[in-house]
Design a protein around this nucleic acid. Structure first.
Ligand code: MN
Ligand code: MN
Ligand code: ZN
Ligand code: ZN
Lengths: 142, 142
DNA sequence: TCAACAGTTTAGAATAATTATAATATATAA
DNA sequence: TTATATATTATAATTATTCTAAACTGTTGA
């Protein structure tokens, strides 16, 4: 689902009825330059800021899960108390800023391809993803 | 906290009172050959199997968090609905079996050192960890 | 055009993991 | 042994998420 699209068409193509709520959520999620990493709460807050009316939390959950199922969103595991979602659905790596709790995507060229030497018989590799945890460097005030 | 230790001594050394419950939990967690990856529920179940009396869930949480704070346990993020803990507290990589929901540690030599080319000014890297998701290979029945 | 129907939204209830509370019990220092 | 700080426990509270069931809306085809 790319930038500045007709989301009504797009939703219909993927078998999702283009309701007012879904179109608005798609605009918020996908009409942007960069990858968006968010929690359900981030999204609900942004919806309320951009619209003046609010969309039910249940609908936000429903829509995010529907978009995820259709492959337009990906869930990311950073910590275990809430779900993060990502508009970049490719297999890719992240920096996680432990101070600001922000996720940053890594481009292909920023992390060398990870070489896996282990093989588990009967199992295939679905994804290989790196998480780089960073925090402010208060040590070297030199 | 190594295998077959006097956990009463060990706990006292780290400033934790060696209560009956803590000693028993340490025995279950650390008296084993291999790394133990577990959820609070896994641990609570195992406690009830090995002891005949049960330890309050609140105490299980308290003890796991106390051990984590002292550096004897590490929290792992696999999915966002429950916490996984790891008796291997070093920075290391994992295979996650999406069929069985089991975590497997990677040895140093099983994944080549990940080369990070990106630098974020003012931030230092705390850890670089790889998660390899695997699942049963039903494709090649050839 | 518009009724019919399936799919969607919604508020609120239910669930599940985790954390907080506060009374009771225990470990340890004096 | 006794006093004090800490820990355990049952239970309540909290938080994220999912479920429910009634009201609503998008779409289809007469
Ligand atoms: Mn947690
Ligand atoms: Mn989830
Ligand atoms: Zn991303
Ligand atoms: Zn591990």
């Amino acid at each position: 689902m790319l930038k500045n699209m007709n989301f009504i068409e797009k939703l219909r193509e993927t078998g999702l009825r283009p309701t007012k709520q879904r179109v608005k959520i798609c605009e918020i999620l996908f009409n942007r330059e960069k990858t968006f990493h968010f929690t359900i709460n981030d999204l609900a807050k942004k919806i309320f800021e951009e619209l003046n009316e609010k969309i039910s939390l249940a609908t936000v959950y429903n829509t995010v899960h529907a978009l995820q199922k259709k492959g337009y969103l990906k869930e990311i595991s950073i910590n275990s108390n809430k779900s993060y979602f990502d508009t970049n659905t490719s297999v890719h790596h992240h920096f996680y800023d432990e101070d600001t709790h922000q996720l940053i995507d890594c481009d292909e060229n920023e992390i060398e391809t990870v070489n896996i030497k282990k093989n588990i018989t009967g199992k295939k590799i679905n994804s290989v993803e790196v998480l780089v945890r960073v925090a402010s460097d208060n040590q070297n005030q030199n």
